[in-house]
Design a protein around this nucleic acid. Structure first.
Lengths: 118, 118
DNA sequence: CGGAATCCCTCCCGATACTG
DNA sequence: CAGTATCGGGAGGGATTCCG
């Protein structure tokens, strides 16, 4: 049976939920150019709390989109990296990022129109 | 100045937030094949409440992604339809839908592995 | 039929403090 | 440095009721 995105019990909807998560998208995009340390991610992604970053990374790890590598050293060093699966998603997310920046003016114009009229 | 997705004050992030909204994605996909009535949308999208559907449609309308057309008739009839801007986004979202269904088995397998190990 | 308005509650998320 | 643990506020969202 074909996965039905519109059925709330279908797993594909849960996959979409992960994609839809704001932090997941930003984290995956940040991992585009290769492995990153925890601290690097925290620094690059403005506004993310420690808690949400960790939680997001665990989620990505659980879904097989990223790997977590602990280097035995002092101070501790942990690297996160996209898996093949994660990279296959990256392509699509990069498209979304491009769309968001490309069409930002149109969206903002539409909002102004809507708000002033209403 | 180039829009910076990682800056929380940047408008592009707000655009991403709309994309990230679970109901928005489903509504846009449901509008793929042409105009739909309010009731049709409510029926096809499992689990959406009246309130969230209306709220989502208002949001899409505000951002210029969809139009709302009221037909003067009894009983009332309201059609929603994607704009050109909305259709340009549809392409990307359809890609996400395909990814979600295609890679669902891999994601579920990864989850099982993660959960049994932990 | 297609909403708007209200109540109400959950749980998401941020802030803070502590640890290996 | 890279987390975990805990607490509390606030927004998101469901259920219900009423309206044009």
């Amino acid at each position: 049976m074909k996965p039905n995105l519109y059925d709330r019990k279908c797993g594909s909807r849960q996959v979409l939920d992960r994609i839809g998560d704001r932090w997941s998208v930003l984290v995956v995009l940040t991992l585009a150019d290769g492995p990153r340390r925890y601290g690097e991610l925290a620094e690059r992604i403005d506004g993310v709390s420690q808690k949400m970053l960790t939680q997001t990374l665990r989620g990505l790890e659980r879904d097989g989109l990223a790997t977590r590598t602990v280097h035995a050293a002092v101070p501790p060093r942990v690297d996160y990296e996209l898996t093949d699966l994660g990279r296959s998603l990256l392509t699509l997310l990069a498209g979304l990022e491009a769309w968001a920046t490309d069409h930002l003016p149109e969206v903002e114009a539409a909002r102004d129109r809507y708000d002033t009229r209403a």
